[in-house]
Amino acid sequence: MLAVIRYTVPEAQSQGFAKQAEVILDTLAAQPGYLRGRLARSVDEPNLWALVTEWEGAGFYRRALSTARMEMYPLMILMVNEPSAFEDVLVQDGA
Rank of each mutant, 00 (worst) to 15 (best):
L28S: 06
D88I: 02
W49P: 00
F86P: 05
S42L: 09
Y34R: 08
V80S: 07
W55E: 03
I5K: 10
F86K: 10
P10E: 09
V9Y: 02
T53E: 09
L48F: 05
E22G: 07
Y73S: 14
V9M: 07
E54M: 10
R41N: 14
L90M: 14
F17R: 11
T27Y: 07
M70S: 06
G33H: 02
R41V: 12
G16V: 04
Y7Q: 02
V43A: 11
N47E: 07
V43G: 08
L35R: 12
Y34H: 09
R62F: 01
G57T: 04
E45Q: 13
S42R: 14
A29N: 05
E56T: 12
G37I: 01
E71F: 04
A95I: 15
T8C: 03
R38T: 12
M79R: 12
F17D: 03
P46Q: 03
L25V: 11
A85P: 00
A12E: 14
Q92V: 13
M79V: 07
E71M: 07
N81Y: 05
N81H: 14
P10Q: 08
V89P: 05
R38D: 12
M72C: 03
V23M: 11
G94D: 15
Q15H: 15
K19Y: 15
A29T: 04
V4G: 00
T27K: 11
V91L: 14
T27F: 06
F17G: 03
L35E: 02
Q20R: 15
A18L: 15
L35D: 01
E45S: 09
A40I: 13
Q20E: 09
F60E: 04
S14V: 09
V9D: 01
A85D: 03
A64C: 14
E87A: 13
E11Y: 13
P83T: 02
L90H: 06
L90D: 10
E87S: 15
Q20C: 02
P74F: 03
L25T: 05
E22S: 13
E56C: 07
A85H: 05
A30S: 06
S14L: 13
V9E: 00
E82M: 08
F86I: 03
V52W: 00
M79G: 04
A3V: 11
A64D: 09
R41A: 14
M70P: 00
Q92I: 13
L35N: 02
